Computed example of a mutant assay.
Amino acid sequence: MNTEIILKPVKIVELFKVLNVVPDNLDKIRARELWEETDQGSGSVVAVLDSGIQVDHPSLKDNVIDGYNFTDDDEGNPIIYQDYLGHGTHVAGIIAAIDNGRGITGVAPKSKLLILKVINHKGRGSFENLIQAIMYAVAWTGPNGEKVNIMNMSLGSPEPHEELYKAIKYARSKGILLVAAAGNEGDGESDTIEISYPGFYKEVVQVGSISETETPSKFSNTNVNLDFVGPGENILSAHLNSNYVELTGTSMAAPFVAGAAALIIKMVNRSRPHLIPMYVYEYLLSHALPLENFSINQVGNGFIQLK
């Protein structure tokens, strides 16, 4: 069985030292319209299972609450979860970059990030590390009693894995919403199926990518379990060396949903924690913009909207 997870290198579209144009994706998903009501996600904790983070990035450093390294990078030192790819830093920025006047802001800029590094500097990881990270996230408690509300997994493998599935179900039973990228193996055809795990598991919110003109991205995996689509092409976010770059992929679409969930979770009934993922999903479902010209295999329940 293939037990390896591989992050395919994502092409850097453009590198920005100074930003002159503010991206409009937050307005496309109507995120700012919930900021006042949800205090921009304050109190929500999103676990980012990825390649780590640039810990001192000016747009991110204030929102990193904790982290752990599950890879062999830095001789396996668990407290060094530095990002050497830029992928995890970019994903984290989409979720929770602070509004510091530099031009990018996350969907939930007051939420906190638990950085769980499961992908090494070569872009490789294992199911075993991913399982460990999921279980760590469930058990984690922050300095003020915080718990993980959401997990973002912008990664995947074509092979299912029974122990991973058990961990996924366990995390969801504890009230954690799990979000994953659909994968970038698509061929642009709606009737061919491409599957990536953990996204394909029904307990996970599987997110595909749409273009700036709200059409399905050619590379985005299509399958019957696709839940929603989010912006995934030419997405501007944080990157290594305190820079900002545009990247493309379903890896970028998933954190828009994770960030959205960090806002929504502030508004749902939290008296029964194990039902929180269902309440958040219902909110996403009731507000999604149907893209009726396309197959549900391509767009799922539609383009996420927060209002």
Rank of each mutant, 00 (worst) to 15 (best):
139 A>T: 11
112 K>R: 15
165 Y>S: 08
107 V>D: 09
178 L>F: 08
169 K>Y: 05
143 P>L: 15
184 N>W: 01
195 I>V: 15
167 A>C: 09
197 Y>W: 05
126 S>Y: 03
175 G>W: 10
111 S>Q: 14
165 Y>D: 06
123 G>R: 04
200 F>N: 08
162 E>S: 07
199 G>K: 01
129 N>S: 04
150 I>R: 02
111 S>L: 13
212 E>Y: 08
116 L>E: 05
182 A>M: 09
154 S>Y: 10
105 T>W: 00
116 L>F: 08
214 E>N: 14
176 I>G: 00
102 R>K: 14
109 P>C: 12
184 N>C: 02
142 G>A: 12
201 Y>F: 07
185 E>I: 02
104 I>T: 00
177 L>H: 10
211 S>G: 12
171 A>C: 06
135 M>G: 06
108 A>Q: 06
176 I>E: 00
184 N>P: 01
102 R>S: 13
206 Q>P: 00
202 K>R: 15
153 M>I: 03
209 S>M: 13
213 T>Q: 14
200 F>A: 15
192 T>R: 14
158 P>Y: 07
211 S>P: 04
180 A>P: 01
192 T>C: 10
126 S>I: 04
190 S>F: 12
160 P>M: 05
111 S>K: 12
187 D>R: 14
205 V>L: 12
203 E>M: 06
163 E>I: 06
114 L>K: 10
196 S>H: 06
103 G>C: 07
209 S>R: 15
108 A>W: 03
130 L>T: 13
211 S>T: 15
186 G>W: 06
205 V>Y: 02
137 A>D: 07
197 Y>E: 03
166 K>Q: 11
141 T>W: 07
205 V>R: 04
181 A>K: 08
214 E>K: 15
198 P>G: 05
171 A>V: 09
134 I>V: 08
190 S>A: 15
157 S>H: 09
130 L>G: 00
140 W>D: 03
175 G>L: 12
172 R>I: 04
180 A>Q: 07
132 Q>W: 09
183 G>T: 10
132 Q>F: 08
174 K>F: 04
144 N>M: 14
134 I>K: 02
187 D>G: 13
126 S>G: 05
189 E>W: 09
179 V>N: 04
209 S>H: 13
138 V>M: 01
